[in-house]
Design a protein around this nucleic acid. Structure first.
Lengths: 117, 117
DNA sequence: ATTTTGAGAAACCAAAAGGTTGCGTATATT
DNA sequence: AATATACGCAACCTTTTGGTTTCTCAAAAT
């Protein structure tokens, strides 16, 4: 069997959201961008890495569409696409629903045993 | 400023949950384990990789405590620790609350402008 | 008692990740 | 017009990742 990806935008997503959020620095950047749109430079000021490193992180976040760019003169403002986080919820819900239905099956089994005694 | 990890068990967690779920194969394993506890061999049968590779994935999932082992004879059953997924919710909630409060501020500003015209 | 089976551990490898420095280019500033 | 600034891109380096193969060990099966 093939490894199934539970997150498949299918068309033009080069990167998956989980992988993008695997890096703690990127998670912090996302949290930062939740407050307001920011430029690479202003983000870099909050970290211990160069502006180029932040740029790379932003590229990855952009590739999975968690973040969008908006050019303003020579500056580029990056802002969060909060909707994209839904995809993570989707996976969590999927796993939980499987988990729950398993319990229901157990409950059903227990009920059957109970009523047939 | 230091890169802040939003997921810090602090004490004995060697691996963070987001990173563990970054790999699509591991996400599928987690979904599989949501149905029932399984041995490495039975998991490997569902994939295109060797048992050893699955073992490695299970080690990573175990390190972040998303999965627990239960020895039975010479077999080891791996079962999902569904509670651990809460940590992901926590991050999502954090980001969303930041995002919401930002909007509230904007709403407040708009209201102020409206009442003072 | 011998052989098979389940599984972790180790050694190894190619590819990806995360970082750096240096460069090119477009937009502001003077 | 000359200079400074904001940024992306490319090249490079080191560490991590995901996989394989091989080995060893303990538990079952014969």
């Amino acid at each position: 069997m093939q490894p199934i990806s539970f997150i498949t935008d299918g068309q033009n997503m080069k990167r998956d959201v989980f992988q993008a959020l695997a890096d703690p620095t990127r998670r912090t950047i996302v949290a930062l961008l939740a407050t307001q749109a920011l430029t690479p430079n202003s983000i870099a000021e909050n970290f211990d890495v160069t502006r180029q490193a932040v740029s790379k992180h932003l590229r990855i976040l952009t590739e999975c569409e968690l973040v969008k760019q908006e050019q303003q003169g020579r500056e580029i403002y990056y802002h969060l696409e909060i909707k994209k986080m839904k995809e993570i919820d989707l996976y969590l819900e999927k796993v939980r629903s499987i988990w729950e239905s398993r319990h229901n099956q157990l409950d059903q089994l227990l009920n059957q045993l109970k009523t047939s005694k």
